[in-house]
Design a protein around this nucleic acid. Structure first.
Length: 223
DNA sequence: AAGTGACACAACCGCGTGTGG
DNA sequence: TCCACACGCGGTTGTGTCACT
């Protein structure tokens, strides 16, 4: 399932991570955070590149990660966001507490992509004679980046208004919280109502875990 | 039991972007 | 303003597992 371990010309290890490497990385980040991924492997005593460490942490070792099957609600959210945003896996990950972008991406490619194709075939049959209407071949219609950001911004605003008020001032800046992405009242995330409870429950669980020194660990999920 | 193809997912690679000097 | 560096993201690959023949 994983790539066999090997070393490149610089002595950097590649491939599957061992238990020992995992615990070294976890231990180091829990104690010191990850201010500098490039230096981290050296300081943690790992023969890995920083990029590899970051990926391992984000997709596998990070606290709060929910592993296992995706729920129907999660599938719906992914499908809906993909329809609106396209391949913005990191944005989707921010909307799905406990899921990494890589996990969502894999899930999309293995499960949901075909699901969408079937839907498209059905809708194409229903709308006979409908011309290209600007869509890319085989892709659902996508809204512009700004529109996408606005839309997710609305969602976050609505969500945050119902969220515990803690820690908002401590959050790092990112585009989702940028006030320049003002909410326009004519756009409304239609999936929100149907999955309201889905948003709140995992969030509360996730808040139980407090990260040590680095509060920017996958921050978008913490409002 | 062996062969084979599909699936699942961890990990790598390359590029774009942000930031500091 | 330009450049170099670090980081993050999305696409893709590689390989173990499972189901089917």
């Amino acid at each position: 399932m994983v790539k066999a371990p090997c070393f490149d010309k610089d002595g950097i290890k590649k491939g599957a991570w061992s238990e020992e490497e995992d615990s070294k990385l976890r231990l180091y980040i829990e104690r010191h955070g990850h201010r500098n991924w490039r230096e981290l492997p050296k300081l943690a005593g790992l023969s890995r590149c920083g990029k590899s460490c970051r990926l391992r942490w984000m997709n596998y070792l990070r606290p709060n990660l929910r592993r296992g099957k995706f729920t129907k609600e999660e599938d719906d959210v992914i499908l809906d966001l993909h329809k609106k945003l396209g391949s913005k896996w990191s944005v989707m990950a921010a909307q799905l507490p406990g899921r990494s972008d890589n996990e969502i991406k894999n899930h999309w490619h293995t499960h949901l992509k075909n699901h969408v194709r079937k839907d498209e075939i059905v809708s194409t049959n229903e709308q006979v004679g409908n011309s290209e209407s600007g869509n890319h071949k085989g892709c659902p219609a996508k809204i512009s980046d700004l529109e996408a950001q606005e839309e997710v911004g609305i969602l976050l605003k609505v969500l945050s208004s119902g969220m515990p008020s803690s820690s908002t001032s401590e959050q790092p800046q990112h585009w989702l919280s940028d006030s320049s992405y003002a909410v326009s009242s004519n756009v409304k995330p239609h999936y929100f109502d149907s999955v309201k409870s889905f948003w709140t429950e995992p969030f509360l669980l996730d808040n139980d875990v407090v990260l040590s020194s680095s509060d920017d660990v996958f921050s978008p999920m913490f409002f």
